[in-house]
Design a protein around this nucleic acid. Structure first.
Lengths: 147, 147
DNA sequence: TGTATCTTTGCAACTTAGTTGCAAAAGTTT
DNA sequence: AAACTTTTGCAACTAAGTTGCAAAGATACA
């Protein structure tokens, strides 16, 4: 299977995701979604603004990320340095109900952030009275490439 | 032991912390440190700016938080909504070497963030090649008061 | 205790991040 | 292709965070 076929498959995937979520097909949404599909690590707002071929307005990027969040297409990864990163949700995520129950890893050397889909968040036992709804685990250290 | 004695003890504690960390004693540093000692939950930058009796410049607050971080007096708590909160480190924390190995809890109703000192972060097993240095666990849900 | 020295503060001016309203442009439906 | 709906870009704004510098304050030392 050549490069061209892969390209067609990704373009199809983009359209499917947008249609499945009842979003109208626009250049901005396609470009940003393509960026996420092409990238194996999480993206910050400014990465997205910088890396799209065609330049979109900051406001468009904000609004697109917001609507992708609402639809459950992407999720945020909090990091200690106050920089939010975004990554694709797996198929099981639905509107409103994120269950990204996986661990995130931030490399202190290269700065890349990845979802470790195969590492599930451990159970945390809380003191009486605290009712947990969501557990975020962010591990930082050095990644495969940097160690 | 009356109110007055407690006050004196806290003022002593403030001076001790500053001296131990070789920081000169200024009104700003004393006020901000007092705020942390009086509060049982984590504080955001704007909380600090708003709650000190005497008003300090934004820049002073930033710089004070920064130097308290460097010295290991406080630590940050990352939250999903991109708002950093700060909390006192326990005595074991030293300059450069934070080991706040406890779980943080953010209440979705009242917004307060607390350190659950007694709940230690669980061990996380990572795939080959990833070398962990720090594990951040933030649980969100409803706290004692709000449930 | 006063003076010299070093540190911290507040101000101004700036950069970056994020929000809102609105008219024009693009997407969708028939 | 016309009518309708949604999205985009622009302008203008608020909030967050940074830097250089002179004045004020803290510390050290005679």
């Amino acid at each position: 299977m050549g490069f061209h076929s892969n390209f067609i498959i990704m373009e199809d995937q983009i359209l499917n995701i947008l249609r499945k979520n009842q979003l109208s097909i626009t250049d901005g949404r396609k470009s940003i979604l393509r960026l996420f599909l092409e990238s194996d690590n999480a993206l910050a707002h400014h990465d997205i603004e910088a890396r799209t071929q065609v330049k979109f307005d900051r406001v468009t990027v904000y609004r697109t990320l917001q609507i992708f969040m609402d639809k459950g297409i992407i999720h945020t990864i909090p990091t200690a340095d106050n920089s939010i990163k975004y990554a694709l949700c797996r198929d099981e995520c639905e509107q409103g109900h994120h269950h990204d129950d996986h661990v995130h890893f931030v490399c202190k050397k290269c700065g890349t952030t990845v979802c470790l889909e195969e590492v599930h968040v451990p159970a945390v036992k809380l003191p009486k009275g605290f009712k947990p709804q969501q557990v975020e685990v962010v591990v930082s250290g050095t990644c495969k490439e940097c160690s």
